[in-house]
Computed example of a mutant assay.
Amino acid sequence: MTDAGAHRELHLLVVDDEAQILELLELTLSLQGFYVSTAAGGPQALEMLQTCAVDVIVMDVLMAPWDGFETVRRMHRAQPVLPPVVFLSGLNRPDTLPDLGPSVQLEYLVKPFRPSELVAAIRRVWDGRSSPSSSN
């Protein structure tokens, strides 16, 4: 038995300020069975989060005018319970991540990564959010 059909179609908000990367992520994740909305930076992502229900956020770290961490902070101020976040970065994961709020569940992937690694990270944060042990 495979788990390919074991999850409902998740709605992802993918945020990146590079148009080519955004397009590639949208195509890759759509082909994996996800429903994908895109935002070309933090301000647009914040606006979209306020107007549509999202299950998981896939967020580039290095963006302008706000980096991914600042975007998540602003999202958290606007919506205290955020969907889980998968951060994508060309930089190694810092030893300590910035404080993004107590309810923010996250994964951190370093580029380059395989599409299967991104899908696995999305499923991990979604499963972690849905599990009873993640409520605290």
Rank of each mutant, 00 (worst) to 15 (best):
L118V: 13
A120R: 13
H76G: 04
A120K: 15
L88E: 02
S135C: 04
D67E: 05
Q44W: 03
S116Y: 04
R74P: 02
P112D: 12
A40T: 11
V85T: 11
A40N: 11
G68L: 06
E117A: 15
D99Q: 12
W66F: 15
L118G: 14
S134W: 13
S89H: 11
P132T: 13
A39I: 08
D60Q: 03
L100V: 02
S116F: 05
W126M: 00
R77Q: 10
L109C: 08
P112K: 11
P112W: 08
D127G: 00
V86D: 09
E107Q: 13
I57M: 10
Y108N: 07
V61L: 03
M75D: 04
R129E: 09
D60V: 03
P43H: 00
L46K: 14
K111Q: 09
S37Y: 04
V119D: 07
E107I: 11
T38I: 01
V81T: 07
S116G: 03
A120H: 14
L88M: 06
R124G: 02
L46E: 15
M59Y: 10
G68F: 06
L91Y: 06
V61A: 04
V58C: 06
R93C: 13
H76K: 04
E107Y: 03
L62E: 14
L97T: 13
V72P: 00
C52L: 01
Y108K: 03
R123M: 14
Q50Y: 04
W66G: 02
A121I: 01
K111R: 14
D127E: 09
W126P: 02
G41R: 12
